[in-house]
Design a protein around this nucleic acid. Structure first.
Length: 271
DNA sequence: AGGTTCGCCTGCGGGC
DNA sequence: TGCCCGCAGGCGAACC
């Protein structure tokens, strides 16, 4: 499932292949994604791509007419194929570029992803306008989290995965960052000291930026590949390791469900 | 308003 | 081998 590093890698991968290119044709084979793809996206045809950006796990493809907003959901990916390559069953959208021998293709088996349209400032889109800060900016810091968490009884893991608090911290990295910071996933968000938030914030920034850095090394295979950066080689200390020994203290890692999501932690190292 | 649960989907792994 | 079942998972919607 694409987490923020995968989305950033995808953004960097498609950018050089579509910026300054004119969209010649749009083929929508399956409009039923998480929401139906709006007819308005057809405004893309004839438009030149002026830039690509990312906000949280949303990718924006900007033109003068408006922005195509893409979310990869859990199983979506963008990749490039030669013009004329027959689509596979889950290849829902093709974006053909004028004078380009390759086509940008959106594939998404589970269709949890989305393709939306926004005119003007794309950040004003309903789904984007109340998102929290980007995790790798200075705006996301311990003081911000501490203030935001005041009085909240919600488990810290759920709190940090709330996109209104901060974007881009998905299940895998929430588990990893909590372990790195030594914070128990069920601890009430409002019951964490500023000092512990300092450690938590730097853990989050560390795991995310390390993953993005590694994602960059897969970019050379982006065109012609399946577009999936895949799981980064970054060693995961807890996620997917329930029942295995903690890498720090060797006691067996526990697994619980928190907000219906798999949560793995060390009962000894995290309090 | 804070907090929890639901549901969209398909692939995959376990059980038989 | 093949079938069935249950589950995973981002995240907005709906509910409490």
């Amino acid at each position: 499932m694409p987490e923020l590093p995968e989305v950033e890698t995808t953004k960097r991968g498609i950018e050089p292949n579509i910026v300054n290119k004119t969209i010649q044709h749009l083929v929508i084979r399956q409009p039923k994604l998480r929401w139906p793809i709006p007819d308005a996206v057809n405004a893309l045809v004839g438009q030149k791509v002026e830039g690509v950006s990312r906000r949280g796990k949303y990718i924006g493809v900007h033109t003068k007419a408006g922005t195509l907003i893409i979310h990869l959901g859990m199983s979506g990916s963008l990749y490039f194929v030669d013009v004329g390559t027959p689509p596979l069953f889950h290849d829902h959208v093709d974006i053909e570029l004028l004078g380009s021998p390759i086509v940008m293709r959106y594939t998404d088996p589970r269709r949890f992803g989305a393709m939306l349209w926004q005119e003007g400032d794309w950040l004003e889109h309903e789904l984007l306008k109340s998102l929290g800060p980007e995790p790798l900016t200075d705006e996301f810091n311990a003081k911000y989290l501490y203030e935001r968490a005041k009085g909240r009884k919600q488990a810290i893991k759920m709190f940090i995965m709330d996109s209104k608090v901060v974007v881009g911290v998905g299940n895998i990295y929430a588990n990893e960052a909590l372990f790195k910071a030594g914070i128990h996933p069920k601890r009430a968000a409002g019951n964490i000291s500023l000092a512990r938030f300092e450690k938590f914030v730097s853990s989050i920034k560390m795991v995310l930026s390390a993953a993005i850095e590694q994602g960059g090394t897969t970019l050379k295979d982006f065109v012609g590949g399946d577009g999936k950066p895949g799981y980064f080689k970054q060693e995961l200390a807890v996620y997917g390791r329930a029942g295995k020994p903690c890498i720090e203290c060797s006691i067996l890692l526990k697994e619980i469900r928190l907000g219906q999501r798999s949560t793995v932690y060390c009962n000894n190292c995290q309090a």
